[in-house]
């Protein structure tokens, strides 16, 4: 077991390395830089506006900034190890740049956000509580709705309850959250006035976004649970349990549930990944200042540092969540053994 965990840890780190390299490579292929369209006389202003006059990651673009050397701001801070002159020196591109980036990452920095005075870490840290709360609440909603409905549908297979629940589940996986969100807003916020249509000042404001984000996964988990349940109730050990005269409740809760949960558990990793992606849209719709919103804004503003920082943080979270889910899986399913 510990050997398995160790192996998985190593591969997780390799994965992270690959993600960082790929994102870095993509960013470097950018066919422009932030000041490309400026006239040369404006370059200095543009440099200042994009915070390039301070140490940023040496990743910005392979297109050099013409005329930036003459900027006053520019030469002043060129002394440091990750100074801006280095950033734009064409000779710096390539492996050196990659190594430098990893070195900076290793020192626990993600650089400065380009369109803000704050560092990337500060921005992510300010958004993370919102995104996490949203994600966790959505997950709770998904599990609380999805598992019981899936179990019920599985137990009442081909009966009206099953059809009704599965039709709802099918609806749930077919309505995009950016349609559901505005729908909920116009119904519960604008018509009924129960909630605020946007913003985030407390738990009350998190209800609609969490539902918007969670319902899709509730529907998906319901489908998974039903499938798992149908498979498990045919197994011999369930028949044995019934034959022993155990109550239906005990059979379901003590024996069937654990097995029926396996597909759900293995879905949790991808689900959390998808939820982080989905929260980008939900944050956008409800105006929540979470990481997803930073991400979209930075993408639209071409703030590559913040985009890269977000991707690296999300990847790290997801890679280790997947690891945790796989380990959890071994405890639930005794047939799965990783001791090879």
């Amino acid at each position: 077991m510990s050997r398995y965990i160790f192996k998985r840890l190593i591969s997780s780190i390799v994965v992270l390395f690959i993600i960082i390299t790929v994102s870095l490579w993509i960013t470097r292929q950018a066919p422009s830089n932030p000041c490309l369209k400026e006239r040369e006389t404006n370059t200095c202003a543009c440099v200042a506006e994009n915070k390039l006059d301070r140490p940023v990651f040496p990743i910005y673009t392979s297109i050099p900034l013409v005329g930036a050397d003459s900027c006053d701001l520019w030469s002043r801070s060129s002394g440091g190890e990750v100074g801006p002159v280095k950033i734009l020196g064409v000779s710096q591109w390539g492996e050196t740049q990659h190594a430098e980036y990893l070195k900076t990452l290793g020192s626990g920095s993600l650089g400065n956000a380009m369109k803000s005075d704050r560092t990337v870490i500060e921005m992510l840290a300010s958004g993370l509580p919102f995104t996490l709360q949203l994600g966790i609440q959505a997950l709770i909603i998904a599990l609380l709705i999805g598992i019981p409905s899936g179990l019920l549908a599985g137990l009442k297979q081909n009966q009206p309850q099953d059809y009704a629940l599965m039709t709802f589940a099918m609806l749930g996986v077919s309505i995009p959250n950016f349609v559901l969100g505005p729908l909920l807003i116009s119904l519960f916020a604008l018509e009924l006035g129960w909630f605020k249509p946007g913003g985030w000042s407390g738990f009350q404001d998190s209800i609609l976004p969490s539902i918007t984000l969670g319902l899709y996964y509730a529907a998906y988990i319901a489908r998974l649970t039903r499938g798992g349940m149908l498979e498990i109730v045919r197994k011999d050990f369930i028949r044995t349990a019934r034959a022993k005269g155990l109550t239906e409740q005990t059979v379901v809760m003590r024996h069937a549930l654990k097995g029926a949960m396996l597909p759900v558990v293995s879905y949790l990793g991808p689900a959390f990944a998808a939820m982080l992606t989905g929260s980008v849209v939900v944050e956008e719709i409800f105006g929540i200042p979470g990481v997803g919103r930073h991400f979209v804004l930075s993408a639209i503003n071409r703030d590559y540092n913040l985009v890269l920082g977000t991707i690296i943080m999300y990847s790290t979270v997801l890679v280790f969540l997947n690891l945790a889910v796989d380990i959890l899986y071994t405890f639930l399913d005794p047939q799965v053994s990783y001791d090879d």
């Binding site: 991808p270 639209i300 997947n322």
Partner: peptide, 24 residues
């Protein structure tokens, strides 16, 4: 298949977003 396993948990949408941002 190990490669597939590894890729399963990655936030691909973010890479796609990065691609769209960089290349228009």
């Amino acid at each position: 298949m190990r490669i597939v396993d590894i890729m399963y948990g990655l936030p691909f949408m973010f890479l796609v977003i990065l691609l769209m941002v960089v290349f228009g």
